[in-house]
Design a binder for these strands. Structure first.
Length: 715
DNA sequence: GAGAAATAAATAGTGCCCGC
DNA sequence: GCGGGCACTATTTATTTCTC
């Protein structure tokens, strides 16, 4: 998915602008207008993968230049970055170094000019709301110091200029890199050890936090009193010399300066017992009057913000009618309580699992990654996924009632498990007649005829529709009693007091009208589908390309990436593995997996001459060709003529191994296992001896085997 | 398998100080 | 007095560990 990136630097008076190949637009941030701009490029790349040639690239630059100039925006292209190059603007060094990684992308350009400088000058005034107050143009951050604003604006930049020399860590800020560097330092000088327990850390903040656990801890904030008792009182002026220049050296600390006035200020600020100024609102103390004034202003604003934000939260809850609608369905009271208490609930998008800890949710999600769900569970997950998407859109996903129960539609039975409801239904209500509408034979038939086919997703999704007379006369309670009766879905745990919401829900159990071509997502609502399609924006942008589309859905075992294109999948996988992609000589097929390449090449070998693959045989290592091809080469070498048509590999006698998770077929079990690792990662696969079930988890296999034992018992 | 807490690490806000 | 940088620290996020 394309991310709308913007980078903004004030320290170097430069602006970075990124070119998005797929969208064919330039994106940059305008200081003058305080917003991001997109500029379309007139030059279209070919669909061929290697089409970004230098000629096209230059044309894109020229077009961008022209567009920029015509737009009269304060940006002029200086140059495209190359690795290791310094950046100059109008003959002057701009003063920003860009890491090699960022330079290495052809999409990154740097712009600077006098216009920008003038804009920056304006920027000095523009964000200044009033004296000593600066606001970030990209967010709501406000500070009273320009330096802090500069530092803050690194948050909006993606460039990490400070790299750790010992690992891959990069930081936007030098001081954070310094903190990080302590991780690599094993010297005891940086290690803080608790004298009352075995706790050790290199972080002073964590050390202090730890020490608070020892209730009898002594005063910790005593840095200012740390001077040795036997140290003599400071000497006001202690001139010394360094390289011939006079130096004023502080006897109380390591400070030294060649300026007498500055030395005097240092001594007065750092080593004199002047009366500190206290904030009346908090514990803040300072020696400087202007600092106190600055703090007081901030302190009062902070209190106001806290109050206003709380009010805003409640107001927001009450404002949106659509939100209100969903609150009713999901439990508005719990939502409000959770919001007020600021208790975050992490919910699994594939099942009903909920936890207060994000880490536990991450761990739980591994279960879904390990095992392919059964059809029934898959449906449940999809439905929950739809609900969650809806809730995400309404920012309610984390605020639903923790005790979400499955309820019997015919009695008060409730349980946490859907299967328990099914079991309950089969035992308790199997003989009972189905729910009847007053006007139709069966409840389901009634729903189908009156509430599914006639439903209009678009109008419902807008939230403006009102229940028809037909709706209310059937499912609602008599006039005036609507809010007293729950409408319970017979297929799931959903229930609502509003017939219109019930009507909107029921089509979920009908045939899904909208099916995503990029993943398994299905929905009956057009609005949801449109929202979902945004997840595949990048893939959609390629929908008209000539790239071959595979019907199989490829899912990354390491993240949530999904795609129908094997090439895209392999390209993505290589990001995790950092492996070099192996290319097929015959087509554009690429894979980091040698076995998979072998398997793929079989599709070409039907009528191909081996010489095409191995034009000049040397040694196997030198050739670095897949094993399968090497085997074929050996056959060729045994032939006297050294030129032979490759044997037909697609023989009917070959046994094919089908992947249970996709349409992949292999004529070699090893290839299938290799392929299965694309579903399960690099873990070993455990197979069921009775059926085709396969999993990477030994424990899962054990659980699975109970199914067969259960089956045997029934027999 | 999951709840809960501890620990580690990254990130960002800000007080403080210094050079000019 | 201003701008910039450093250092401290609170907060957030990720990982590990203990326990049931």
């Amino acid at each position: 998915m394309l991310i709308y990136k913007k980078s903004y630097f004030t320290s170097g008076s430069t602006i970075t602008m990124k070119y998005f190949k797929r969208k064919k637009i330039f994106s940059y941030y305008s200081l003058e207008q305080n917003k991001c701009f997109e500029i379309k490029s007139n030059t279209l790349y070919n669909n061929n993968k290697s089409s970004i040639d230098s000629e096209n690239e230059n044309r894109v630059e020229q077009n961008a230049m022209t567009t920029l100039r015509e737009s009269k925006l304060p940006v002029v292209l200086v140059q495209k970055l190359n690795i290791g190059e310094k950046i100059y603007a109008d003959g002057k060094e701009v003063g920003i170094s860009v890491s090699e990684e960022d330079c290495d992308t052809p999409e990154l350009y740097v712009f600077s000019s006098d216009d920008i400088n003038s804009s920056l000058n304006k920027e000095k005034e523009a964000p200044e709301l009033k004296k000593d107050k600066y606001q970030c143009p990209l967010c709501t951050y406000v500070t009273h110091k320009k330096g802090h604003l500069n530092q803050h604006q690194l948050v909006h930049s993606e460039v990490k200029l400070f790299s750790c020399s010992q690992c891959s860590y990069k930081s936007k800020r030098k001081n954070n890199l310094k903190s990080h560097a302590l991780r690599h330092s094993s010297s005891s000088a940086n290690l803080l050890e608790c004298v009352k327990c075995n706790f050790r850390t290199t972080f002073s903040s964590q050390f202090k936090k730890h020490m608070l656990q020892h209730t009898s801890v002594d005063k910790l904030d005593c840095e200012d009193d740390d001077y040795p008792e036997n140290s003599k009182s400071y000497v006001d002026k202690q001139p010394n010399s360094e390289n011939g220049a006079k130096l004023f050296i502080c006897s109380k600390c390591a400070y030294k300066t060649k300026y007498e006035s500055i030395f005097a200020r240092h001594m007065s600020k750092r080593h004199t017992n002047i009366q500190p100024l206290h904030c009346s609102e908090c514990d803040f103390v300072t020696n400087e009057k202007n600092e106190l004034e600055c703090h007081l202003l901030k302190c009062s604003e902070r209190d106001f913000d806290i109050v206003s934000k709380k009010c805003l939260n409640i107001q927001t809850l009450e404002q949106s009618s659509e939100d209100k609608l969903d609150f009713e369905e999901d439990g508005i009271e719990n939502h409000i309580n959770d919001t007020k208490d600021n208790k975050k609930i992490f919910k699994c998008s594939k099942c009903n699992f909920e936890t207060k800890y994000g880490s536990n949710l991450s761990r739980h999600m591994l279960r879904h990654a390990d095992l392919q769900p059964s059809n029934e569970d898959k449906l449940d997950c999809e439905e929950n996924g739809i609900e969650n998407q809806k809730n995400d859109a309404d920012k309610l996903s984390n605020t639903k009632d923790i005790k979400k129960l499955f309820q019997c539609s015919k009695c008060d039975f409730e349980t946490k498990y859907k299967k328990s409801v099914d079991r309950h239904m089969s035992k308790k209500h199997l003989d009972e007649p189905p729910l009847h509408c007053t006007n139709v034979k069966t409840f389901d038939a009634h729903l189908e005829s009156n509430h599914i086919e006639n439903s209009d997703e678009d109008s419902q999704s807008s939230g403006n529709s009102k229940p028809t007379t037909d709706d209310t006369q059937h499912l609602d309670t008599p006039s005036g009693e609507e809010d007293l009766m729950w409408h319970k879905c017979p297929h799931c745990e959903f229930r609502t007091k509003k017939s219109q919401y019930f009507k909107r829900h029921m089509p979920k159990h009908s045939i899904f009208k909208y099916k995503c071509e990029f993943c398994n997502y299905k929905t009956h609502r057009k609005a949801f589908f449109a929202t979902h399609l945004k997840l595949h924006e990048d893939q959609i942008s390629f929908s008209n390309s000539e790239e071959e589309v595979n019907e199989t859905l490829f899912e990354c075992p390491d993240c949530s990436f999904k795609t129908k294109r094997k090439s895209a999948f392999n390209s993505h996988i290589s990001q995790h593995t950092n492996k070099t992609l192996l290319s097929c000589f015959e087509c554009d097929f690429q894979t980091p997996n040698e076995d998979e390449l072998d398997s793929h090449i079989l599709s070409h070998t039907k009528t191909k001459n081996v010489e095409r693959y191995i034009p000049n045989l040397k040694s196997e290592d030198d050739l670095k060709i897949p094993r399968l091809k090497r085997a074929k080469v050996e056959q060729v070498l045994q032939n006297e003529n050294n030129v032979i048509e490759v044997e037909e590999p697609m023989s009917e006698e070959i046994r094919w191994y089908d992947c249970p998770n996709c349409n992949f077929k292999a004529n070699n079990k090893r290839f299938l296992d290799s392929h299965l690792r694309t579903h399960f990662g690099k873990k070993s696969v455990h197979e069921c001896s009775i059926c085709s079930y396969r999993t990477v988890s030994k424990q899962n296999l054990k659980v699975h085997m109970f199914k067969h034992s259960d089956f045997n018992l029934k027999i």
